[in-house]
Amino acid sequence: MTTAVAHSWFMTLRHLRALLRQPWWIAITLVQPVIWLLIFSQLFRRVVEIPGFASTSYITFLTPGIVVMTALFSNGWSGMGVIDDLNRGVMDRFLVTPVRRGAVISGRLVQSAIVTTVQALIIIGLGLAGGARFGGGLPGIVALLLAGALLGVAFGALSNALALLLRREESVIAASNFILLPLTFLSTAFMPQDLAPDWIGHVARYNPVNWAIVAGREALQADVGWMTVFSHLGYLAVFAVVCGWLATRAFRTYQRSV
């Protein structure tokens, strides 16, 4: 067990180091959520005036949505790194060492969780600076971070599984494009459920992206409904476990094909 943890951590460090060496990646990762937060909060500023909108401040409403959207997008592409490792033969080199097989995948997922949490903290800070107010305080913020990390890990695992099965960059890009944007818009990231068409509401109920938004947004309210928060975090945890299991299966499929 301790070996597995140590190996995961060595792999995590490998991925973090590689990211920190890419100034463009850092710039884009930091700037992109800022742009989303600014653009969407400007674009939809007057949405709060619609009768029936629960909040009076759109940025307060939007911030958890952007946190979750960022978690989704920065991990939905995680599989590209796997393809790079496959193409360069790095994956096979790891497989002839005594590395714990699980660590090859879990190292990436731990890295996902860390990066997602840092990004989320930055977005929350920007939201606060832009006038958002979170009545839920620190426990609420922790719940939002947890929701983002769980969603990030789940989609990171899913993306890794896709990469291990498809093994081609183009295919993974196409699949990710196909999945990520619709999932974002079929949620309450930008618009409360009451104001969206019914069918979107129905879809959103089964959309893991929306579970993360609901959990995070609820936890940030002054009067927190903890049942809602915990149940949605629970769904997310189950979803993350299922995705992790799928990634492990995909990894076995890859090993058999070598």
Partner: peptide, 23 residues
């Protein structure tokens, strides 16, 4: 392996260190 399998984004020292840690 037939194809060089070093981690291109890591230094020589980091490549060797990680390899050693896995053993």
């Amino acid at each position: 392996a037939q194809k060089s399998a070093v981690d291109a984004e890591a230094t020589g020292r980091e490549n060797l260190t990680l390899q050693g840690q896995l053993y």
